[in-house]
Write a protein that binds this DNA or RNA. Sequence first.
DNA 1: CTGCAAACAGGATGACCGTCCTGTTTCGTA
DNA 2: TACGAAACAGGACGGTCATCCTGTTTGCAG
Lengths: 210, 210
Amino acid sequence: MSERPTSPNRRMNDPQGLRQRLVDAAYVAFSTRGYHSSALHDLKRDADVTGGALAHHFPTKKALGLAVIQDRVAEAVELTWITPVKLAATTADGIQAVFAAIISELERKGGVSGCPLNNLALELSREDEDFQAAIEAIFTRWRTAIADKLRADLRAAPVRDFDFEALATLVVATYSGAMAMAKASQSVAPLKICAEQLTSIIQNKTALGH
Amino acid sequence: MSERPTSPNRRMNDPQGLRQRLVDAAYVAFSTRGYHSSALHDLKRDADVTGGALAHHFPTKKALGLAVIQDRVAEAVELTWITPVKLAATTADGIQAVFAAIISELERKGGVSGCPLNNLALELSREDEDFQAAIEAIFTRWRTAIADKLRADLRAAPVRDFDFEALATLVVATYSGAMAMAKASQSVAPLKICAEQLTSIIQNKTALGH
DNA sequence: CTGCAAACAGGATGACCGTCCTGTTTCGTA
DNA sequence: TACGAAACAGGACGGTCATCCTGTTTGCAG
């Protein structure tokens, strides 16, 4: 019931704000219900935007989807994963903290709707190569950030034959798969288990000794 | 151009065969293009089935989707994962063989369309609780089979504090996530990396020592 | 042979959805 | 103030899709 402050009858052009409301609503919808299951009609209602405004900013649904991926999904990965890991004392600490934060957030609300990046990756990667490229770029940035952190961990006490990229790939893959299992079971149990396994593995591998 | 042997003009009722053609076509379509992106019109064409026949066997699209999950997806997991792992000498051997088989199969054809179970899990788990239950059951069976094999591995030389279910969860999650990354990058590289990491981890954990 | 339910044919239907089109308003610029 | 481009309003349109409906055929029971 919250009317936007377009009080009397006067219109105010606000292209940036309107675009942001639109992308925000689309991000929520695409992340939870999926891209194809989200109708533009609902997005227009949620963002309080008319068809003409939508068409003006995003000529096609694909353009909106691309904006969601590049603006919001990339930002979400940056905020929930990359930055916390980078700021943590060690990679293992960072990963444990990220998992814990995500788990408690999921427990706060009722259900598990899954990782936005993973959801859109499986739905759109094969459908359109622009989507695929945008999604792959985020995965690459994510994996690279973890690999860099692992490299930093071992700056002081190097371990020979350590493949940073491979271990980072394992982390990203395990998280993605754990979230998929969590979504399928509507339970955070797979996330808790994989968090413990992963941190144990990383601590072992980054410890002294070959 | 391959006409089915309905040679002159005579019809032959074949409820089981028709149902099988339908579920087969739906399995392929749902696994590659996804559930919502697959139109019943295309399935009818692929399976050479009319609308009346389809409605007779599956009153709704959901019923067809449920049959695909319970009949074909469950069977696929059984054939490509559970049986090979069960027949292998060790869990690590089995997992390595399964990954290798899947990778070479993906390299044979051109693209990566992803794990059917994972694809449908992310698309349908939150949409309908019947779908969710059917998918969760397959994940549970999959994970349990791997845990059982791990238990069998350590029958002779037990390792204390070994959590079979947790390690099995890690395996399933890592595979699912690796396949998601493979789909996003349209490359088998994540699968190769995770296969190596996983077998290394399992061999370490199942080896002698605390 | 006969009746009857299951199996199938083929199209109608109504809802939905993305896109586009025409008109109106805002706002920077000159 | 005049003007033009951008921003926005609101609905029409065409296509698609899942479902349903009416009729016909098959095949088994009796």
